Amino acid sequence: MTPTIGRAARTGQEAMPNPAREDAGTASPPTQRVVQVLELLSRHATERLSLARIVREAGLSRATAHAVLTQLTADGWTARDAEGCYGIGLRLLTVARRAEAAFPLRRTAITHLRALSEHTGTPVFLAERDGDSIVVTEVVGDPSAGWIRPGRRLPLAPPVCREFIAWTSEPERQEWLSTADPAHRDRLTHVLAEIRARGYSVERLADDSTPVLEALAALRDSPVTSALRTQLSSAITELITIDYLPDELGPENAVVTVAAPIRDTDGAVIASVVTCPDTRLSTTELSNLGTATVAAAQRITEGDPGD
């Protein structure tokens, strides 16, 4: 969905501060403001952002943003250039590098992600489980889907993230399925079994359907009548075709992503390797891509440091 662009954004004027956005639901609003600024700058790590842009995108008042940035810059967390624009500072970079030691999976995975991307000619990313969410933590190449970027968080909810659920216990699978749209549950049950059999999931939703799907889902989840919610759910069901079952594969198959699981020492799925062809593949090409993705995930599971 395309974000609504307000008058201030269109004209280059600063947006009015939103006190509710600054303070709502936070135990420590001053800390939250610092985090907002650092998160914004980290999303644009190779750029320098003007104070006006930071004010607008972080939803802070000019005075607040200036005060936060002045202190962060004085302490080395951010840097200010000659034009008065801001970026991340060396102190933040140092802390980030130290923090990498807490995430050994990413260090092990990155070599294999690069090799897989080079071998298949497709972008690749690593998705890690974080409680009830999945977080994109490493991206190699330039995926065509705009949502694929480091830090992007997705709910572990039907019908996506199936490779994280396929190998769980039967009670866990049933609990996950119980939260799915009733129209999808039978298909999802068969799809999970197929994913276990072949070793990977396939996302086949065409990119041009995504904006429509997101709009319908937002309407369905808003305060509407039961009759309208049922109609919206029906429309969503018609747009989504979940994965491929064996008898559905043809000469050409739309494939957005292929994902294979990474397991911990207990066998639980903690992450996945995801290749992103976003094109049409023959059955053989899809099988080969799936095999390569599974092999990379297996090497990461085994802790192979790669070359």
Results as ranks from 00 to 15, higher is better:
Trp167Lys: 07
Thr168Val: 10
Thr168Pro: 11
Pro171Leu: 13
Pro171Phe: 11
Pro171Ala: 13
Glu172Lys: 10
Arg173Glu: 07
Gln174Thr: 07
Gln174Ala: 11
Glu175Gly: 10
Leu177Ile: 11
Ser178Cys: 03
Ser178Phe: 04
Thr179Gly: 09
Thr179Pro: 00
Ala180Thr: 08
Ala180Arg: 04
Asp181Phe: 04
Pro182Tyr: 07
Ala183Tyr: 10
Ala183Thr: 12
His184Trp: 15
Arg185Trp: 06
Arg185Ile: 10
Asp186His: 12
Arg187Lys: 08
Arg187Thr: 07
Leu188Phe: 02
Leu188Glu: 02
Leu188Arg: 03
Thr189Ser: 14
Thr189Ala: 13
Val191Ala: 05
Ala193Asn: 06
Ala193Lys: 08
Ala193Asp: 14
Glu194Tyr: 10
Ile195Asn: 05
Arg196Glu: 04
Arg196Asp: 01
Ala197Cys: 03
Ala197Pro: 00
Ala197Phe: 01
Gly199Ala: 03
Tyr200Lys: 01
Tyr200Ser: 00
Tyr200Pro: 00
Tyr200Thr: 00
Val202Gln: 00
Val202Leu: 02
Glu203Asn: 09
Glu203Met: 07
Arg204Trp: 06
Arg204Asn: 10
Leu205Glu: 13
Leu205Pro: 04
Ala206Tyr: 08
Ala206Ile: 05
Asp208Trp: 09
Ser209His: 11
Ser209Trp: 02
Thr210Val: 15
Thr210Ser: 02
Pro211Phe: 09
Val212His: 11
Val212Trp: 04
Leu213Val: 02
Glu214Ser: 08
Glu214Gln: 12
Glu214Gly: 04
Ala215Val: 09
Leu216Ala: 03
Leu216Met: 06
Ala217Val: 13
Ala217Asp: 14
Ala217Gly: 06
Ala217Ile: 11
Ala218Met: 13
Arg220Ile: 04
Asp221Lys: 06
Asp221Leu: 07
Ser222Lys: 10
Pro223Arg: 13
Pro223Thr: 09
Val224Ile: 14
Thr225Ile: 05
Ser226Asn: 06
Ser226Trp: 02
Leu228Phe: 04
Leu228Met: 07
Leu228Ile: 05
